[in-house]
Computed example of a mutant assay.
Amino acid sequence: MRDLRAMADSAGRVNPLTDAIRNSYAAAFAVGGAEDYMPMLGTQISRINGVYIAPSTER
């Protein structure tokens, strides 16, 4: 994220992506998802929004 922010800053561009990522991690942490790995971030965000993702049973 630091590299992305540095590139946007050096180009004089707005970079909402790093703020959105940081806020998403903070939200997941706030609801007890701190022990989960990054791939679980979507699961934590969906849980915050009242959507529960179940594992697929199709193979």
Score class of each variant (00 low, 15 high):
Leu41Gly: 04
Met1Leu: 06
Gly12Asn: 05
Gly42Cys: 01
Gln44Pro: 01
Asn49Met: 11
Phe29Thr: 09
Tyr52Gly: 01
Pro39Tyr: 06
Met40Cys: 09
Asn49Ile: 00
Met1Gly: 06
Ile48Tyr: 04
Asn15Ile: 07
Asn23Thr: 12
Asn23Gly: 12
Ala20Ser: 13
Leu17Ile: 14
Thr18Pro: 02
Thr57Leu: 14
Asn15Phe: 10
Asn23Ile: 08
Gly32Leu: 00
Ala8Phe: 01
Phe29Gly: 04
Ala34Asp: 06
Asn49Arg: 06
Pro16Ala: 06
Arg22Met: 10
Val31Pro: 04
Arg47Ile: 03
Pro39Thr: 02
Ile48Gln: 02
Val14Gln: 13
Ala26Trp: 04
Asn15Gly: 01
Ala27Cys: 08
Asn49Ser: 07
Tyr52Cys: 00
Gly12Ser: 01
Pro16Gln: 07
Val14Ala: 14
Glu35Thr: 08
Val31Ala: 05
Val51Glu: 05
Thr18Ala: 05
Ala28Asn: 03
Tyr52Arg: 08
Met7Asp: 13
Arg47His: 06
Ser24Asn: 09
Val31Gln: 04
Met7Phe: 15
Ser24Asp: 00
Ser46Phe: 09
Ala54Phe: 09
Thr43Asp: 07
Val14Lys: 11
Met38His: 15
Asn15Glu: 15
Met38Thr: 15
Glu35Gln: 08
Ala28Asp: 04
Arg59Ala: 15
